[in-house]
Amino acid sequence: MTERYKVDYQSPIGVIEIVGSNEAIYSILFAEEDILVNPISEDTPQVIKDCYSQLDEYFKGERHEFTFPMMIEGTPFQQLVWQSLTTIPFAKTASYKHIAVTMGNEKAIRAVGTANGRNKLSIVIPCHRIIGASGKLVGYAGGLWRKEWLLNHEQKFQQLK
């Protein structure tokens, strides 16, 4: 198995744990701790440094897309859902039903919701852009307050694209 490294990034909405190898990023998730346990260092693999830098640019409103290599681990269905999420434009939203229809299976709404909740590449695969069919904010593993913050952040910086 490929050696994995962890680095913590202090975002405006909490600590984000980045897990990756020398080749790719495996996960970007909000940490339980409010302190940086795994700081970036000279020995940190370049791909993790690139992810860290791109997240920093995102939170500064300077980046709308991510270009570092990622390893997306999940079932074929989950991967299809996550790929569909990447088609939602910066500062826009879509519903679970929209994603299900896009995938060609209108009845897969709940399965899309479940896959959305298992996304390990927060922000980069923009599960925060999924809202309920009613237009209300629904489920977000990082907490609805973070989801609201991210959507407001993107609205604020959409004109810079």
Rank of each mutant, 00 (worst) to 15 (best):
residue 131 I to H: 09
residue 112 V to L: 01
residue 151 L to Q: 15
residue 6 K to Q: 15
residue 91 A to V: 07
residue 111 A to I: 02
residue 28 I to V: 15
residue 141 A to M: 04
residue 66 F to Q: 06
residue 28 I to F: 08
residue 142 G to K: 02
residue 42 E to Y: 08
residue 137 L to I: 01
residue 51 C to D: 04
residue 57 E to L: 15
residue 98 H to F: 05
residue 1 M to A: 13
residue 76 P to G: 05
residue 27 S to E: 15
residue 133 A to G: 00
residue 42 E to V: 11
residue 74 G to H: 09
residue 105 N to I: 00
residue 59 F to V: 04
residue 90 F to W: 04
residue 121 L to Y: 04
residue 151 L to C: 08
residue 21 S to G: 10
residue 111 A to G: 06
residue 115 A to K: 04
residue 79 Q to T: 08
residue 158 Q to A: 10
residue 86 T to F: 00
residue 134 S to D: 15
residue 63 R to L: 15
residue 141 A to K: 01
residue 123 I to A: 10
residue 98 H to D: 13
residue 54 Q to G: 04
residue 4 R to N: 00
residue 12 P to F: 07
residue 10 Q to I: 09
residue 53 S to D: 07
residue 149 W to D: 11
residue 69 P to F: 06
residue 37 V to C: 09
residue 21 S to D: 04
residue 77 F to L: 01
residue 116 N to I: 01
residue 34 D to A: 09
residue 24 A to P: 08
residue 121 L to M: 13
residue 125 I to Q: 05
residue 62 E to G: 06
residue 158 Q to H: 06
residue 42 E to A: 13
residue 49 K to D: 07
residue 160 L to S: 08
residue 101 V to F: 07
residue 4 R to K: 12
residue 90 F to N: 06
residue 77 F to G: 07
residue 145 W to D: 14
residue 49 K to S: 04
residue 51 C to A: 15
residue 108 A to M: 05
residue 47 V to R: 06
residue 127 C to T: 12
residue 138 V to D: 09
residue 47 V to Q: 03
residue 85 L to N: 03
residue 74 G to E: 01
residue 112 V to A: 05
residue 30 F to M: 10
residue 118 R to P: 01
residue 23 E to W: 06
residue 87 T to H: 12
residue 67 T to L: 05
residue 137 L to G: 06
residue 114 T to H: 09
residue 101 V to S: 00
residue 97 K to D: 10
residue 92 K to F: 12
residue 19 V to M: 14
residue 18 I to S: 08
residue 71 M to I: 05
residue 155 Q to I: 10
residue 55 L to F: 05
residue 145 W to C: 02
residue 106 E to D: 14
residue 86 T to I: 06
residue 115 A to R: 08
residue 22 N to M: 00
residue 134 S to V: 00
